[in-house]
Amino acid sequence: MSGTIVQNPTTATFAGSTTVTKSFASGCTNGSLLIAMASQELDAGTFTISDPTNGTYANDKTQASGAGSNPTTVTVRSIQNTATSALTITCVVGTSGYGTLSIFEETGMATSSVVDVTAGGGGAATSASINATTTTANTSIYCIGAGYPQMTPPDTSYTTQFGPTGINNAYHGGEYRQDAGATGSVTLTMNSWGSPNTWSMAFVAYKPTGGGGGHTRVGGAFVNYSGVTYFGATPSGPY
């Protein structure tokens, strides 16, 4: 069973500042998972994300584009929440510039070792996509990217969090999927260009309560632990 995204306010944009905050509208749930995605238009940019109750968020995945025209850095971070108040999340970047901050609260998530897999990629290339293989069923996947000269709409089965939109020298966009279903390969794509362009992109898959391991039966499909799907067949292995 997947987690449930219970709060997902609009995405913040900022320019000419090192400190941006975003607030949840309602009180948070003790034991929930708080996720923050941020981007900035700087190669190897640094982020510190925190809230007053839970402290500094874990750096689950940060990806820089590398040097080049229109460089960027993106990050996905999280922390297990212990607050019941409507928290304000603060993101501090190392150098003043341009960027975004998105925050989520999700319940029904693992309370330890919550990260299943991560993926990141960046550089100067004619296409931009990243891949990882989830090892837990029903993960929630959060993805952010930035690049130039354009980004494509969200990947199939994913929901747009924001963008893609031009902030200053790059486009930024974020997407998520509350329930990624069975384990298996996940490839998310930002764009494909005719000539090399600078990009950075990261995603993190978070585990639901109980780890989501084993197997699930959905609509007659039986999915085993390694992600092989048997339609209408009787499973015969140790599941």
């Binding site: 913040a12 944009t13 000419g16 500042s17 090192t18 304000t88 939109t165």
Partner: peptide, 21 residues
Amino acid sequence: VTSITTSKANLQNNLCSVGVL
């Protein structure tokens, strides 16, 4: 609610902005 905190040294082209997508 979305906010920034800044000062003159951090402005970009003498501007700052805070927004929502």
